[in-house]
C-alpha cells in the first residue's frame, strides 16, 4: 500500500462530505457529512504518521484529538438542532431565513 492510496481515499471521503454538507436539507445529515470530512482528515493523519514513522506519533495523536473534538462538535450540533426542532418542528436548515434581509 502506498501513501497515495490513503490520500485518494481521504480525498474522496472529504469530497463526499462536502457534497453532503452542501446539498442535504436535514441538519442531522449535514452534521454527519461533517463527520465524514473529519474522518477523511483522520485517515490522512494516521497514514502520514505511519508513513513518517513519527517517533512522537504525531499523526495518530492528532487523529485522536480530532475524534474527541468531533464528538464534542456533534454534541453541540445536535443540541442546536434539537433547539431549532423544538421551536419550529423542523430540522431542515434551508428554512432558516429570518435573518435574510
Amino acid at each position: 500500500m502506498t501513501i497515495a492510496q490513503f490520500l485518494v481515499l481521504s480525498a474522496a471521503l472529504f469530497s463526499i462530505g462536502i457534497y453532503g454538507v452542501l446539498v442535504r436539507r436535514n441538519a442531522v445529515l449535514v452534521l454527519l457529512s461533517v463527520e465524514l470530512m473529519l474522518a477523511a482528515v483522520n485517515i490522512n493523519f494516521v497514514a502520514f504518521g505511519r508513513y513518517f514513522a513519527d517517533a512522537t506519533a504525531g499523526g495518530q495523536m492528532f487523529a485522536l484529538f480530532i475524534i474527541t473534538v468531533a464528538a464534542a462538535e456533534v454534541g453541540i450540533g445536535l443540541a442546536i438542532v434539537l433547539l431549532i426542532f423544538r421551536n419550529r418542528a423542523s430540522a431542515n436548515i434551508d428554512e432558516l431565513d429570518v435573518l435574510k434581509w
Partner: peptide, 17 residues
C-alpha cells in the same frame, strides 16, 4: 442543487468552499 437555493446556510457553506 435546485432546492438548496433557498437554504442560506448552505449557500454560505458553498461560498466558503
Amino acid at each position: 442543487l435546485r432546492y438548496i437555493q433557498t437554504g442560506k446556510v448552505q449557500q454560505y457553506a458553498a461560498a466558503l468552499f
